[in-house]
C-alpha cells in the first residue's frame, strides 16, 4: 500500500483496539466538563481533565467555551448557543472519522469540509406548542471532500465515519442522563 499522510496515527489506534479487546477495564473513559454561570444566559464551561486507560489524564491545555444566546433571543451573544455546540461536536467527530478511515484505507485527503444545518423549531423550548420537541427537528451534514479516491470510496468513508462516530451515536440514539443537585 502507498503511504498516505493524513496525519492520523492509525497504527496506534489499531494497536489500542487489540490491547483493549482483552483489557476492557482500560477502555472505560470518563469525559468531564464544568460550567459556571456568568450573567443572563451566558455561561463558561471549562474542559481539562478526563479519565481513561485506568488513570486520570489531562489535556495539554485547558479549554474554555462561552455559551450565550444571540441578539434575537434578547441576549448578549457572548458565545454560541448551547445547541450549536452539538453541531461543533458532530462536525468535528465526523471529520476526525473521515480522516482516520481514509488513513486506514490508504486514501490521501486534500481537503475535507463540512457544512451542518440543524433545523430547530423553537416553539418547543418556549413552551409555545406542547407537540414540538425541544431539540433539533433534524440535522443535515454536507461533506465536500477532495481526495485521491472515487466518489463511491468517498461516500464509503463518510458512511464508515458515521458508523464509528461517538457524537453521531450520542445524537441519534437515546442516552440515559441523570441531572441532580449536589
Amino acid at each position: 500500500m502507498t503511504t498516505v499522510a493524513n496525519g492520523v496515527n492509525v497504527q496506534a489506534l489499531l494497536d489500542a483496539r487489540e490491547v483493549l479487546k482483552t483489557a476492557p477495564e482500560a477502555a472505560q473513559f470518563v469525559w468531564r466538563a464544568s460550567s459556571k454561570w456568568q450573567n443572563g444566559v451566558h455561561s463558561t464551561t471549562t474542559v481539562k481533565e478526563f479519565f481513561g486507560l485506568g488513570q486520570e489524564q489531562t489535556h495539554k491545555n485547558e479549554a474554555v467555551f462561552d455559551a450565550d444566546h444571540p441578539d434575537v433571543f434578547a441576549a448578549e451573544d457572548n458565545g454560541i448557543t448551547p445547541i450549536e455546540y452539538l453541531l461543533v461536536g458532530l462536525a468535528s467527530c465526523l471529520t476526525a472519522g473521515v480522516a482516520s478511515v481514509a488513513q486506514n484505507r490508504g486514501i490521501q485527503l486534500r481537503s475535507v469540509e463540512a457544512t451542518l444545518e440543524g433545523k430547530h423549531d423553537i416553539r418547543g423550548i418556549l413552551g409555545a406548542d406542547a407537540d414540538v420537541r425541544n431539540g433539533f427537528t433534524d440535522i443535515k451534514v454536507t461533506f465536500n471532500i477532495d481526495a485521491d479516491a472515487s466518489k463511491q470510496d468517498i461516500e464509503a468513508l463518510v458512511a464508515q465515519s458515521q458508523k464509528r462516530s461517538a457524537v453521531f451515536d450520542a445524537i441519534t440514539n437515546p442516552t440515559d442522563v441523570t441531572v441532580e443537585v449536589a
Partner: peptide, 9 residues
C-alpha cells in the same frame, strides 16, 4: 435517527 446511514452502508 441513523437510518440513512445504515441504508448508505
Amino acid at each position: 435517527g441513523g437510518l440513512r446511514n445504515v441504508f448508505s452502508l
